[in-house]
Design a protein around this nucleic acid. Structure first.
Ligand SMILES: [Mn+2]
Ligand SMILES: [Mn+2]
Ligand SMILES: [Zn+2]
Ligand SMILES: [Zn+2]
Lengths: 153, 153
DNA sequence: TTACTAAATTAGAATAATTATAAAATGATT
DNA sequence: AATCATTTTATAATTATTCTAATTTAGTAA
């Protein structure tokens, strides 16, 4: 955890930004909620618990900065807010998401899975892929299991 | 074109909605700009040209209705507005997009390309795929050709 | 330390997208 | 023609995000 923060600090310094207390508190919240998909407001409320003086605009600016440095990815699941997601260290591409249309859960797929598709896109469309967003909408394993049990009855 | 409208009219009736003049004007704008990715405001301004009395809220409501009926898909490219995209008639899934990070162009891929990936997702994650959103970010063929020409000089 | 300077933060205002509300209009049905 | 549900309009309200100006902080040099 600390080493992760240190490496992020170095990334910031490398781009001649400082790791201010507010930025550090924001990064810590993101690390502590790595599996979640927090909105700026969510992050703000959580950061406020440890650094009550922080302003919402600072959170927005910090998230924007982290996005620029590809430390986090900004994503939109269609509910009107942007959400921020820590990128796996060293990952070339953003990971994928499974959004359940029944229970609303959002699960992650860290494997890339798109190598073949990207090869096709690069060749057939002469498009140089730098990143991607892939989200599946459907029924998650929990809801599927629940339905299976209900049918058994 | 007319037959396309007729089929949409039937879809609406099938769900016990009417094809009011405002709704028809909105659908026509979408059909006439099928290759674009219009925001609600964009649609509103275009509809206003043929039906100047229409209100913005009606456009929003119509687009929401068309989304519900899967006649259009709502998508967000990260620029703060939702965009609306006619779905190919009979297509099971939303098509894919190529967003150029240099010139901003948005191109479409109508082929599915994800059959294999979806099979993996269904089997390995026990996730029942109903739909998807796939967007590649990178450099489009036009920009790639331009760069190639510049290098030649 | 002290002074200087650029970067960063704060509080609050402004903007912009979207949604909600209430009154009026429409259109199908008896 | 009268009725009743649906739809639209105009406008207000809400919400997410960005901007602004004043203040604070952190780093550097005297
Ligand atoms: Mn994620
Ligand atoms: Mn499209
Ligand atoms: Zn579920
Ligand atoms: Zn381009």
């Amino acid at each position: 955890m600390e080493s992760r923060i240190d490496r992020i600090k170095k990334q910031l310094h490398g781009a001649s930004y400082k790791l201010t207390p507010q930025r550090e508190a924001t990064v810590r919240v993101l690390l502590e909620n790595e599996e979640d998909h927090l909105s700026a407001e969510d992050v703000y409320l959580l950061v406020k618990e440890k650094a009550p003086e922080i302003g919402l605009a600072t959170v927005y600016r910090t998230l924007e900065l982290l996005t620029e440095l590809k430390i986090v990815d900004k994503i939109n699941f269609g509910d009107g807010v942007s959400r921020y997601d820590l990128r796996q260290e060293g990952a070339a591409h953003f990971h994928h998401h499974l959004v359940c249309i029944e229970c609303g859960a959002v699960d992650e797929i860290q494997e890339d899975l798109l190598d073949d598709v990207e090869a096709v896109v690069e060749k057939r469309w002469n498009f140089t892929v730098k990143d991607h967003r892939l989200t599946f909408h459907g029924i998650c394993w929990r809801c599927n299991e629940r339905h299976a049990n209900e049918d058994e009855q």
